[in-house]
Design a binder for these strands. Structure first.
Lengths: 264, 264
DNA sequence: CAGTGGTCTAGACCACTCG
DNA sequence: GAGTGGTCTAGACCACTGT
């Protein structure tokens, strides 16, 4: 309600509602107690202007419209911890850490797997250091929790390595895909993880049912043999409102020179 | 131009322009060769409808308006690799990897530092396992490159640990803040890194000059002593269009059981 | 069926940039 | 000064949800 120095009306409306949410007046999951029409009357502006303000908040990921005609609702946050290192450690270092799809026994986990032979996208080809025209085996997984799509997990393998292996089988690989690679004579020795964030593409919005104002994290994983040959590249698309990625580091790991710094 | 099955006009407009960009018709950095008015005539709709479509693309981070009357422009991507592990390794494992503010000698790097004594936000208090009411020393850094704000780096230290140290000095600490902690008798032994993504708050938009459609990554770093006492917590806010975070892992690091898995 | 948000029109005036 | 995007109005009709 408090108007500041000559900012557009729609921003003021957004700021007021944002403040109310931050203050706790409208708790997560609750409905915003005013309709567009009410707000238009209250601020004495047109509905279009109110809408512009509300749309801004939607694009911040702060509120959303769950279903047509049910009003604007404050988004609640419930993130799952993703722990790339969890798989190759005997037990968790930090007690508070979760492991994916393990401590959510009450929820119905599921995944859809499809296998294709494809020409890799340029970035994948570069990571795998493939010659132009070289093909890859792509294992696409869409994972769900309670029938809600949760993340996308696309693993690319050089065709030469994967062609006659169990990687071509579009069913869950209980052993882990690294075991299959090992059977083929490729032992994974080290890995590179990268994470970036952007807004989702329309395809991702479709596939993951991402609503407006939610970014995605792109978490990439490249696996190498001891002589630094890349043998796999995995691209994870993680809706930002559902995931946290966590890593651990220890001073006495090899290659450390004793310093453990916060820089950057 | 190709209309699909009964989707709103503004989405069609957005889809057409998105396709043209993806196809390479409008390369990164170039201007979209149509004004709002032209598009309105071309699609035979009102300017408001065209605007709705363009706004959608802006909120995807695909296009933006550099200055008031200069038209819509395709965003170009130029990301910097952030490598938390770089500081405690003698030399980079992977040749392709960068190190922050080191290989950009042609650019003017800068940072503004401020030190405050504050009550920590709840999440920081929890990470540092502080009792209610316990204070922290907060070192706020805003880093710039070519006078463009680049990221925010806020480090919290328990007041009891930092109070009489050089951490209170709001100037660059050449040695590294860990060295200061060591002088105080706290040797950092291991660390926890977490990364998540969301849309920026208005304060972050202001401080980092983030434009619409750009998410931020929140990269947190918590440092512990050998007996698992948390002695520092750093919160980095990284605009999604500028940063990639990278980690490396090796099979023969301690705690590894020989498996190195891709499972998200 | 009333209420709510989703889409759209046909205008208007303003602020800023560029030639 | 012409062109461009930024803000805003006062309507309209539609699609869907809930009671």
């Amino acid at each position: 309600m408090t108007r500041q120095t000559s900012s557009p009306v729609y921003r003021q409306i957004a700021a007021d509602i944002r403040a109310a949410i931050t203050r706790g007046d409208y708790p997560p999951g609750s409905r915003i107690p005013h309709t567009e029409l009410e707000l238009a009357q209250r601020y004495n502006v047109s509905r279009a202007t109110v809408r512009q303000g509300l749309t801004a908040l939607v694009n911040e990921g702060l509120i959303y419209v769950p279903a047509r005609s049910s009003g604007y609702q404050v988004r609640s946050i419930n993130k799952m911890v993703l722990r790339p290192q969890a798989e190759w450690r005997e037990q968790p270092e930090t007690p508070a850490m979760d492991r994916f799809m393990t401590d959510h026994a009450d929820r119905k986990a599921d995944q859809a797997i499809a296998v294709e032979i494809v020409a890799p996208p340029p970035d994948v080809a570069e990571q795998l250091r493939l010659a132009p025209g070289e093909l890859t085996v792509l294992r696409r997984r869409t994972r769900s929790l309670d029938d809600q799509p949760f993340n996308i997990n696309d693993s690319y393998f050089p065709y030469a390595i994967a062609k006659d292996s169990a990687l071509m089988d579009p069913s869950d690989i209980a052993l882990g895909t690294s075991e299959i690679l090992l059977e083929q004579g490729f032992r994974m020795d080290h890995a590179l993880d990268t994470i970036e964030a952007r807004m989702p593409t329309p395809e991702e919005v479709e596939r993951l049912k991402i609503s407006a104002g939610i970014p995605v994290m792109i978490y990439r994983f490249t696996g190498f043999t001891a002589d630094d040959q890349p043998i796999r590249h995995t691209v994870n698309v993680l809706p930002g409102n559902l995931h946290i990625v966590a890593f651990e580091r220890k001073r006495n790991w090899p290659n450390g020179d004793g310093k453990l710094e916060d820089e950057a």
